[in-house]
Amino acid sequence: MLSDEDFKAVFGMTRSAFANLPLWKQQNLKKEKGLF
């Protein structure tokens, strides 16, 4: 599990902003970052 700081560094957004994205968009971002 990423820390909040690492999460923001990897995804360029906060966890709450990420959580507001549609599920497909979350999955695409995870795949792009190799976290899926």
Rank of each mutant, 00 (worst) to 15 (best):
S3F: 04
L23Y: 13
A19N: 13
Q26Y: 01
L2D: 07
Q26A: 02
V10A: 07
L29I: 09
K25P: 01
A19M: 14
T14Y: 04
L21W: 02
D6Y: 09
S16Q: 14
F36Y: 11
K30S: 10
Q27W: 11
A17L: 05
M1I: 13
D6K: 10
D6Q: 13
F18W: 05
M1Q: 12
K31A: 13
E5K: 09
W24H: 06
K8A: 12
F11T: 02
S16T: 12
K30W: 15
S3P: 04
T14H: 04
L2E: 07
A17W: 04
G34K: 06
G12H: 05
L35N: 10
L21M: 06
E32F: 07
E5S: 08
A19V: 07
V10S: 04
F11E: 00
K30M: 15
V10T: 09
T14E: 07
G12N: 06
K31I: 13
Q26K: 04
N28E: 15
M13V: 05
L23P: 11
D6V: 08
S16V: 12
F18I: 01
L29W: 04
F36V: 12
S16F: 12
V10D: 02
D6S: 08
L2F: 10
F11I: 03
N20Q: 15
F11M: 08
N20K: 15
L29S: 01
A9P: 01
S16M: 13
F36T: 13
D4N: 05
Q27R: 14
E32T: 08
L2P: 06
K8E: 15
K25S: 06
K8N: 10
T14I: 04
G34N: 09
E5Y: 08
E5T: 07
Q26T: 01
D6L: 10
Q26E: 00
A17E: 15
L29A: 03
L29N: 01
L23A: 09
F18E: 00
G34W: 08
N28Q: 15
K8W: 14
A19I: 09
F36G: 12
D6P: 02
L23K: 10
F18A: 00
V10E: 04
T14D: 10
E32M: 09
W24C: 10
S16H: 11
S3M: 05
E32G: 07
F18H: 00
M13T: 02
L35P: 07
A17Y: 05
E32V: 07
L21F: 03
L21Y: 03
A19G: 09
L29Q: 02
K31M: 11
K31P: 03
W24F: 05
K8F: 15
G34Y: 08
L21N: 01
K33M: 11
L23S: 07
A9V: 12
F7M: 02
F7A: 01
F36N: 11
K30D: 04
M1R: 10
G34H: 09
E32N: 08
L21H: 00
L35G: 09
T14A: 06
S3E: 06
L23R: 11
F11V: 03
N28R: 15
L29R: 03
W24L: 06
M13C: 05
L2I: 10
L35S: 09
M13A: 01
K8H: 12
N28D: 13
F11K: 00
K8Q: 13
Q27N: 14
L23F: 12
M13R: 01
M1K: 11
A9R: 15
F18N: 00
F36A: 12
P22S: 05
L21P: 01
G12L: 03
Q26I: 02
N28M: 15
L29Y: 05
K30N: 08
A9Y: 10
R15K: 13
W24E: 09
D4Y: 03
E5R: 07
Q27E: 14
A17Q: 14
K33Y: 10
L29T: 02
L29P: 01
D4I: 04
W24D: 07
G34V: 07
F18G: 00
F11L: 04
L23G: 08
L21S: 02
P22G: 02
K33D: 03
M1E: 14
G12T: 02
N20M: 14
P22N: 02
Q26H: 01
L21A: 02
L23N: 06
D6I: 09
K8M: 15
K25V: 13
E32D: 09
L2C: 10
S3A: 06
T14P: 05
V10P: 00
P22L: 02
P22D: 04
Q27K: 10
K33T: 08
N28I: 14
D6G: 09
G12E: 04
L21I: 03
K25L: 14
L35D: 10
F18V: 01
T14G: 05
E32A: 11
P22Q: 03
S3V: 04
N28C: 15
F7K: 00
F18R: 00
E5Q: 08
N28V: 14
R15W: 06
D6A: 13
F11S: 01
A9F: 11
D4P: 05
F11P: 00
G12M: 03
K8S: 07
L35M: 13
K30G: 07
F7D: 00
K30I: 15
P22Y: 03
M1A: 11
Q27S: 10
Q27Y: 14
E5G: 06
P22M: 03
K25F: 10
F11H: 02
F7E: 00
K31W: 13
L29M: 09
M1C: 15
T14Q: 03
F18K: 00
S16P: 05
F18S: 00
F11R: 00
L23Q: 09
S3I: 04
F7L: 01
K8T: 09
K8C: 11
N28L: 15
S16I: 12
V10N: 04
K25M: 14
Q27H: 13
K33L: 15
N28Y: 14
R15C: 07
R15T: 03
V10I: 14
F7W: 07
F18T: 15
N28T: 13
R15M: 07
W24N: 06
F7R: 00
P22H: 02
A19T: 07
W24S: 07
A17F: 06
K8V: 14
F36Q: 10
D4Q: 04
R15G: 02
Q27F: 12
Q27L: 14
N20V: 09
A17I: 05
A19Y: 15
Q26N: 01
K8Y: 15
K30T: 11
D4V: 04
A17R: 06
D6E: 14
S16R: 12
M13Q: 01
L23I: 11
A9Q: 10
S3T: 13
N28H: 14
F18L: 02
R15H: 04
S3L: 05
L35I: 13
F36R: 09
A19Q: 12
A19F: 14
N20F: 06
P22E: 05
K31Y: 12
F7G: 00
D6W: 15
E32Q: 12
P22K: 02
D4S: 05
G12K: 04
N28S: 14
L35A: 08
M1N: 12
Q26V: 02
G12I: 01
A19H: 12
K25T: 10
E5I: 09
M13N: 00
F18Q: 00
K33E: 03
L21T: 02
L35H: 10
S16E: 15
L2W: 11
E32W: 08
G34E: 09
S3D: 10
L21D: 01
F7I: 03
S3Y: 04
T14V: 03
A19P: 00
A9D: 08
N20H: 11
E32H: 07
E32S: 10
L2S: 05
T14F: 03
